[in-house]
């Protein structure tokens, strides 16, 4: 009950889940026609994406990821006292999917649960809320879940996004840290709604409900087909935004933490695609070995990309106590966030 800001938080374990179906470049090349498989790989760095089955939702992926987490040693469902679910593809308009997840996992009813709607910046936002929950004494063990199924938004004839996005989920257990030192944070955030139109599903919300009209498909100047019910991405605008804001956010979080780049062992960016990551790496002059990547076989999984990389670092023993990782999420919103974590 004591209010205290001295309780630190850390990532205890991460569980992942990817749907079974694979969409590889060969299949994409056959469907899209004008790009060879090698060219898709060269441009995106992605070999295959995992795609949710018909009828399989982000909540289903989330539940699998949570079960994979709960199977890990030292993780107990009874101890979990909060759920944050970050998704842009909930099961229902209402109720909130996090409540359904609470019940599906058999967690106690005396816990808080809610969804947040964020994309590529969602995991870092979620970490901030989770560590706030722990610091404020609202919770001791937070289940932070990210899950999305962008494939369901994407028009099959829109190569500009179909080549990039995959479906997937992550479940992270955030616990109070025994040493009072917080190992998550500091954080910096940013929002620029003026760029909301650059990455958007124009119809389906209250502003523009789905209708016959919004289902009408149109061909754009590059030959991509989409309707207002589909995901639209202005790749050029997103690239320009990323190059302008991400380096600033990175510098800001280093400054806030009192660190310099040499103090950072790894920089984990939102895994947008090879092309954007290499542009960032060159611009920010980050050595390749400090920039772990993991998207080649899963694509851009939106809010799950960062925990997917951290999970591999943890599993392979590359992330050791005392090491520091900078996380930077950026994209749809436009929204971005950065933080420093250590084990």
């Amino acid at each position: 009950m004591m209010q205290s800001n001295t309780v630190g938080a850390r990532i205890e374990a991460i569980g992942l889940y990817f749907p079974d179906a694979s969409l590889d470049n060969k299949k994409l090349a056959e469907e899209l026609g004008d790009w060879a498989p090698e060219k898709i790989l060269e441009k995106t760095g992605i070999r295959e994406r995992r795609i949710a089955a018909e009828g399989q939702t982000a909540l289903d992926l989330a539940e699998h990821a949570c079960r994979n987490l709960l199977d890990k040693p030292g993780v107990s469902a009874e101890e979990i006292d909060f759920i944050i679910l970050c998704t842009q593809a909930p099961d229902y308009i209402l109720p909130t999917s996090a409540c359904i997840l609470q019940h599906a996992l058999g967690l106690r009813t005396s816990i808080g649960a809610f969804d947040i709607n964020l994309g590529c910046s969602g995991f870092v936002y979620g970490l901030s809320i989770a560590s706030g929950l722990i610091a404020s004494g609202s919770a001791q063990q937070v289940l932070l879940v990210t899950s999305d199924t962008y494939s369901k938004f994407i028009n099959k004839k829109d190569r500009s996004v179909r080549t990039l996005f995959g479906d997937g989920a992550s479940a992270s257990l955030i616990v109070s840290s025994p040493n009072l030192q917080s190992t998550i944070g500091p954080f910096v955030f940013g929002t620029d709604g003026a760029g909301a139109k650059h990455l958007i599903v124009p119809a389906g919300g209250a502003r523009n409900a789905n209708s016959e009209e919004t289902r009408i498909e149109q061909v754009d100047g590059s030959g991509n087909v989409r309707s207002q019910d589909n995901l639209f991405m202005d790749g050029a605008a997103i690239m320009a935004f990323t190059l302008a804001e991400v380096p600033k956010a990175f510098s800001a979080v280093l400054l806030k933490a009192g660190l310099v780049i040499d103090d950072i062992d790894y920089v984990v960016f939102h895994q947008a695609n090879a092309f954007m990551l290499s542009a960032l790496r060159k611009k920010m002059k980050i050595p390749e070995e400090k920039m772990p990547c993991r998207f080649e076989n899963v694509g851009n999984t939106v809010s799950s990309t960062i925990p997917i990389v951290i999970e591999e670092l943890m599993a392979s023993g590359k992330f050791q106590p005392g090491q520091k990782i900078a996380l930077v999420g950026f994209g749809v919103g436009l929204s971005w966030s950065a933080c420093i974590i250590s084990l």
């Binding site: 709607n117 929002t191 909301a196 990455l199 389906g204 749809v332």
Partner: peptide, 8 residues
């Protein structure tokens, strides 16, 4: 919208 977040 479904996405992005309305707060943005």
């Amino acid at each position: 919208y479904r996405l992005p977040a309305t707060a943005c």
